[in-house]
Design a binder for these strands. Structure first.
Lengths: 176, 176
DNA sequence: CCTTATTGGATCGTGTACGATATATTCGCG
DNA sequence: CGCGAATATATCGTACACGATCCAATAAGG
């Protein structure tokens, strides 16, 4: 076994502007100065945080027999029933090509119904079944606030910042 | 005939019992106590922000002929060459089952080499080729800071908060 | 040495994401 | 009314994520 790198430190973010310590590993020899490392990318922070959320939710969702996007769809439908696919897609930031398989799966599991709108047969309206609503209740207990290690006000502020970030990105992307 | 789809029985009219008829300007109808709406979930904010980042990067990455995870791998390898698959996985928060196909693709594209470590043939060491390093240079210009609509200090603080959140989640998940 | 356990990657199956495309339905306009 | 454009959803191909599992190479223990 090689001695030099069997337990490499996980990525240490080095934010240059307000260099906060977070020094827990040993610094590795850096190839160059002045270039951005992985830890400097906000997009990577979000990306990896999303993976981390997925893993944190996994256990609770397994008990429900759902995946993460499936669960989000249930929550979104519980808020308002009878949404069309594209309305749901707006909420979830997904399009029909992603949403349709998820919805078909959930329908097959008996948690929702998909039916063409008689007034406009192009549209499909989604409504939770009784089982679907029950599922939403059962998932109510899943609360990861503690796992985030954030105080309630930090939690709320961070969420608001991320939402703003997301909306700005979408706007900028649409304009470009 | 419609494409295929069996949207279930036709016997049920679309019932919109909790129809909150999203007319613009209405105050948000209050759900029962303790019930969180989609917008209240930090995990959903992160999830959708990640989607938004993917879309924002898409254009720039297309010019490089890379996907988002492929690009992250290039950046991570540029930081330190000769990493093993699992070391790279620690940085990217991915495991071999996800990483191996990505690395094989990048190898096939000529951006990196994968070779068994002679000292321990179980390990595979990854090193960027010249083309791979050039690619990293070419991608250097991709900068979405402006698109985030955040001031540099806000950007840095948000990133640090997300990193902390991620690490707390991982810790909490590992402990559970 | 020989056997067994562990480790590092790879493979497989399922489920998202998403661009490109297909198809059905409705709309607009002559 | 008829027909092309627009709309809403579905399908297809590619590429992640990830649990489960397989395999080769090494470590561990007699």
């Amino acid at each position: 076994m090689r001695a030099n790198e069997s337990t490499g430190s996980a990525s240490n973010a080095v934010v240059r502007d307000n260099s906060r310590d977070n020094s827990k590993g040993n610094p590795k020899p850096k190839p160059a100065a002045g270039e951005r490392r992985l830890g400097d990318f906000l997009c990577f922070a979000i990306y990896s945080a999303n993976l981390a959320f997925g893993r944190a939710y996994k256990k609770g969702l397994e008990e429900l027999g759902l995946t993460y996007p499936q669960w989000i769809a249930i929550v979104a439908l519980w808020e308002q029933d009878g949404q069309t696919v594209s309305e749901l897609g707006e909420k979830m930031f997904l399009e029909s090509n992603t949403l349709t398989p998820i919805l078909k799966k959930l329908e097959q599991m008996g948690y929702l119904r998909r039916q063409r709108d008689p007034a406009d047969e192009r549209q499909v309206r989604i409504s939770l079944t009784e089982a679907g609503r029950k599922l939403r209740e059962k998932g109510m207990h899943m609360n990861l606030v503690a796992a985030t290690g954030l105080k309630p006000d930090e939690f709320a502020r961070l969420q608001q910042n991320v939402v703003t970030l997301r909306d700005n990105l979408i706007k900028a992307t649409a304009e470009a």
